[in-house]
Structure formats: C-alpha cells, structure tokens
Computed example of a mutant assay.
Amino acid sequence: MTEKTKKEKKVIVIPAREDRNSENGQEKNKRRVAAYARVSTNKESQQTSYEAQVQYYTDYIKKQADWSFAGMYAEEGVTGTSTRKRVEFQRMIDDAVAGNIDLIITKSVSRFARNTVDSLTAIRQLKEHGVECYFEKENIWTFDTKGELLITIMSSLAQEESRSISENTRWGMRKAFQNGKVFVPFRHFLGYDRGANGELQVNLEQAETVQMIYRMFLDGYSFYRIAAELTKRGISTPYGLQIWNGRTVKNILQNEKYRGDALLQKRYSRDFLDREMRKNEGAVPQYYIVGNHEAIIDTEMFQRVQEELKRRESRHGK
C-alpha cells in the first residue's frame, strides 16, 4: 500500500460537560451536605455539648458557598456502640441512599459509631451510593484512598474505649453491690420515694395501694382481676399510666423490696455492644440484703403470697 492510499487519522474532541459551573453565569449545582451529632447521656454538661454541635454544624454548612444545607440529624442520650436504636442515624442513612445527601460531616469517628463493624458497614453503604463522609477531628474523608484504613483504626480504638468504660462501670456496680448499695428506679417504683441520702423512704399513699394488691391476691383475686380493679379505681401504675396489666401486678407481688430486703443484679448486660439486658439466672453473682429498708409488707404476708404464687403456678401447670 502506497503513501497516497493511506487514510489520515482524524481525532474528534468531545468536550467535557459542565456539571458544576455554567458559562452563562447560572448558579452552581451545590453539594448537598448534612451533619450528624450525638451525645450518649442526658446530663446537663452533655446537653450543652449536644446543642453546641447542632448549632455549630448548622451554621458551618450554611456558610459554605458551594454547599447547600441538607439537614441536621442529631441524637441525645443514645449510645454509639450500636446503630440499631439510633433512629436519627438510620434516617440519615436512608435519606443518603435515597439520593438526598452528597456529603455527611460529623465531629469525630466515635460520634459516628463506636462499633467497628457498624461504622465500616455504614460508610461502605454510603460510598456505594456516592455519599462521602468527613470526620472533622481526625480530618478523614472517606473518598480518600487512605480513608477506610484510618476509619478502621479509629473505630477500633473507639470500640475498645467503650469496652473499657463498660468494664469499669460494671466493676464499680458490683463493688457497690458487695457493699450493700441499692439502686432503685424511684420514678417507676410504687411505694417508695428517694430519701435525703438516696435511701428508700415509704410513700404512705402508694404503700396503701401495694398492701391492697397483696390482700386482694390472698383473697383469691387473679392478676388480671386486680389490674382491672386498680384501673377502675383510677389508681396510677408505677409508670404513671391509668391502665394496669397483670404483669405489673405480678411483679409487685414478687418484689422482695416490699418486705424490706433487696436482691441486687437481677438483670445484666452480656455484651457491651448491644447492651441488651437479660434476666440473671446464675450467669453473674447476685447479692441479697436482708433488712435494707423499712418494709411495706410484713414477712408473714409476703411469704404467704409467695406460697400462693407457687400453688397457682403448679395448678395451671397441671
């Protein structure tokens, strides 16, 4: 083939499309940016931190010329060791996957999640949908080549910190139990108020309700019939509700605190990551304190009720 018969190559340039800026001076397509804030307790000091985070990131995003504010997702009094109970976190992920967010910024990796698996799973899910995360304290961008490695390291450190705090807390609680320290949820405990030094102090009006429940049970009333009668009389439950149920009545009848004693560590958390409370059936030590506080039900009546509970349970079993 001669030189004359050869065809010359022709290169055609296809210009890039202008996604962000337009030639005619139209407004930029701004990056939609959301922020996530979380504090793990409802304490006053933490509440200040929570409010400060919300205000800071709201103002910070709105000041950026090429960003548009896509929302503030914030949670108060929620642990970071699991994402299952973090409603705002899940809502943020759903909005991002739906294409409503381009970038998520947060204070630190530990604010995002203290569980390594949860943290990486969420970040990879977001990345698959083109959503980037920025952690201000560590200066980590997830689209950066080293981003995932750094997040893995920082999440692991945050998770170990949570483990250490959890173990120290459990150790402190068990030492308190060994020393006879009784913890009671007074706001949801019928019959007693918190005394000046944190001790159980009899609430006379509520104590009458407790005594009535014990008498009705020994008179042959079932849990559900007692509950119906209490509801009919307009007596509030331990949680301040107006409708009683049989389970609440049974719990009151079985609670040793009404005889002046206290069984400690009835429930325990097996895993610091999910913090699910389980009934203690011998997995960890329990501590029984005799004569811890003033009784509402005398020992004889309390014992009769326990025997009647067993009798009815055996009868239903047959």
Rank of each mutant, 00 (worst) to 15 (best):
R111T: 00
E18W: 00
V11H: 07
T248E: 12
L190Y: 15
E132A: 09
E294N: 12
V54Y: 03
V305W: 15
A158F: 08
S49P: 04
F302Y: 15
V54P: 05
V305G: 15
T48Y: 10
N245L: 00
A37G: 09
Y221W: 09
L264A: 13
R267A: 07
A113V: 05
V13K: 09
C133Q: 09
G180A: 12
L157T: 09
A65Q: 15
D219K: 08
M173P: 04
S49Y: 08
Q55R: 11
K266A: 03
V87T: 11
G317V: 05
I105G: 07
R312D: 14
K232G: 04
K30S: 10
V182D: 03
G220A: 13
I153G: 12
K107T: 05
I235A: 12
A122R: 12
K310D: 14
F135A: 01
F272D: 03
I153W: 04
I151G: 01
R163D: 04
V182T: 01
I153N: 11
W141S: 01
M216R: 09
N245D: 15
G77D: 01
G282A: 00
I105V: 14
R275F: 02
K279Y: 06
N179K: 14
A16Y: 03
K10P: 00
V249S: 13
D59P: 02
E27H: 03
W67T: 05
R17F: 01
D271F: 06
L204M: 00
R275L: 12
I226L: 13
D95Y: 01
N29T: 12
Q265M: 04
A196L: 01
S162R: 13
L126K: 13
N197R: 05
A228S: 14
M277I: 04
Q211E: 14
N139K: 01
Q53D: 07
R194V: 00
K43D: 03
T248H: 08
E205I: 08
N115L: 09
E256I: 12
W171C: 05
L150S: 02
K279D: 08
T48H: 09
F223R: 13
T152H: 12
T121N: 15
D261A: 09
T58C: 07
C133V: 08
Q47T: 06
Q303S: 15
A65Y: 04
M1H: 02
Y239L: 07
L263S: 13
E8I: 01
V13F: 11
T248I: 14
L126Q: 10
S166G: 03
N292I: 01
T231F: 08
D95T: 00
R270N: 08
R20P: 02
T152E: 12
